[in-house]
Amino acid sequence: METTKKERMLTGNKAMAEAIAQEMEKNPEVFVLGEDVGKYGGIFGSTEGLLGKFGPDRVMDTPISETAFIGAAIGAAAEGMRPIAELMFVDFHGVCMDQIYNHMAKIPYMSGGNVKLPMVLTTAVGGGYNDAAQHSQTLYSSFAHLPGMKVVAPTTPYDIKGMMTSAIRDDNPVVFMFHKSLQGLGWMDLIEASVGHVPEESYTVPLGKAKVMREGKDVTIVGIQMMTVYALEAANKLAKEGIDAEVIDLRSLVPLDRETIIHSVQKTHNLLVVDEDYRSYGMTAEVSAVVAEEALYDLEHPIKRLAIPDVPIPYSRPMENYVIPNADAIYKQVKAMISE
């Protein structure tokens, strides 16, 4: 009997840690610093196993001093090191945003390109597990709005590893947002999408390129991270009713892959944009504006958006489920717009 070689499957967090480990092996100037990145391996597993491999000089637990350690990463990057600093929850950016947007994002520009900051700022995003208003946000656009940082948010374990490798090798500051639900952690709802095939060898996935996750001809659904997962789920349900949805996983917010979005809308003539971030002034508005500017007359129906309805994330389960878009909401929204 012939045996087929089984594909190696990894969770999102292991894919992320593996990319970091492989770059650390290659380049002695790559190091990690942040809260609980050492023995704990990152609260969301992003640095799992790294301390044992590389020791405390290269996997550095820090005090609760985000301004100091993110600022120190900036200072080290200016010297040519390639630090990876972890901001445990994106919600915590309030205590250190000055270092992020006034320094990390602006120094390369203010120096006329004479100073490069080859650093990665990793941070956990996402709700859906009742962690309430200060630990559940998905602040994509708060970062993507500010010039000078690449902002990426991969969905699949394959992309997490490939894009982390790209981020570390990039000469620009990269904000690498990983979704808690896609890390594949044992202490959360295990989502099927958080486990996937990841090659053992090192590889890159480019930053700034969206991915067509499912081809279709009737409607384009643009999502990112968990919204991509839900869009695919909705697309399967829609397919049974004869509606063929194309699902685009943005993967990168900055740079934004406008071309892939426009091409898709020119084919499907309908657009739904789904975001786990707040609705107003956010990613859904940006993607909609791109299509309105470049492909308005290709649209059959007005653009639709699903996002957090401009309220802080509520704690209680029924309310949180109500405000975060899900597969059912996407399904219903597509049905409604197609039948308009």
Partner: peptide, 13 residues
């Protein structure tokens, strides 16, 4: 005050 952490990063290097 914001330049102090950058100096920390330089000497960490």
């Amino acid at each position: 005050g914001a330049g102090i952490p950058h100096a920390v990063g330089a000497v960490l290097t």
